[in-house]
């Protein structure tokens, strides 16, 4: 019943072909209040009770370290074959690989919540790359900044999974989506702002055809009231700059075009948080109804975990 659980539950319930029927939260207090507030939804703090029923699909929006055990339990008990997991898929490459082997036996739809793929600006940037608007990409610079822990003074220890996994995974996924497989060249971790945790990470990568890239990830950056995910991509014929607000195309010969969200047909049937969340959930639902593959699925998302593991090694 965290914020992502409520966000997905709300959006799903707004889709005409979907009805949220049950929720699980391990907190007895949350369970008691939610039970009274959510009249049409069965709420339980007992995982065994939750798993007694069969569902058309299950969304896992718990903290990252719990994803692996929960998803394995869902598969092993046959609760459903259609599973959506909030990013990242698991806490590491080994677990993600094990899950991918598990889904090979199942015949359902699986998906991981990398919502940036469903934002109109990042989609536009990918379309520009596909149509060779800047020629072949030569290098890129990717960043993710937030102010989540700017004022943390030692007592606050994030339990979410570390800055690279929790915050950086979105821009890592976008980079893999844009450029294909990447290899780590060099990684450095920022000085700790909090006990037992990292404040930021920087690393360099290389890709096919001599592509080079660098990542800068920090959740201690002042001025970022919302997390910002961005890339600056340099190609033989120009530069593409993209974040959640806009895409800018600058041609080497001069001239530039900027598209804001406003220009890219951003409307959705139900707007909550940001339009990409609706598109993401609708994509998963459509894949189930049409028995098609959702993207990014577990196999695709596992590549993000592989890359993060190599950064953290």
């Amino acid at each position: 019943m965290g914020k992502m659980g409520l966000l997905h539950a709300s959006i799903l319930n707004s889709i005409p072909s979907v009805r949220v029927t049950a929720m699980y939260d391990k907190s007895p207090i949350m369970k008691r209040f939610s039970d009274k507030a959510l009249n049409n939804i069965y709420v339980t703090d007992n995982f065994n009770k939750f798993t007694r029923s069969k569902y058309n699909a299950v969304f896992v929006t718990t903290p990252i370290p719990t994803h692996f055990s929960i998803v394995m339990e869902i598969y092993s008990q046959g609760i459903t074959n259609n599973i959506f997991v909030e990013k990242t898929l698991t806490s590491g490459d080994q677990q993600s690989t094990a899950l991918c082997q598990e889904i090979a036996a199942a015949c359902g739809v699986n998906m991981v919540g990398y919502m940036c793929r469903f934002a109109v600006t990042y989609g536009k940037a990918r379309a520009l790359l596909k149509e060779q608007a800047i020629g072949n990409p030569i290098s890129f610079s990717a960043y993710t900044y937030s102010s989540d822990f700017t004022n943390a003074k030692g007592k606050l220890v994030p339990v979410r999974g570390g800055v690279t996994r929790d915050l950086g995974s979105h821009v890592i996924d976008l980079s893999l989506w844009y450029f294909g497989d990447l290899d780590i060249e060099q990684a450095t971790h920022g000085s700790s702002a909090m006990a037992n945790d990292e404040s930021g990470t920087r690393f360099r990568v290389s890709g096919s055809d001599g592509l080079t890239g660098e990542f800068d990830i920090s959740w201690c950056k002042a001025g970022y009231r919302l997390p910002e995910f961005g890339l600056v991509i340099t190609g033989a014929k120009g530069v593409i700059t993209v974040n959640a607000d806009l895409v800018k195309l600058e041609k080497s010969g001069g001239g530039s075009i900027t598209w804001h969200r406003h220009d890219l047909n951003d409307n959705v049937p139900f707007l909550l948080g940001a339009s990409e969340y609706y598109r993401e959930d609708a994509h998963f639902v459509r894949a189930i109804l049409e028995n098609s593959r959702a993207d990014p699925d577990f196999t695709t998302a596992a590549k993000v975990d592989q890359l993060i593991d190599r950064v953290e090694r």
Binding site: N13, A37, L38, N39, G273
Partner: peptide
Amino acid sequence: IVTDMSLALDLKW
């Protein structure tokens, strides 16, 4: 956020 979540979750009460 509260309005739209509550609408979608049918929190008529």
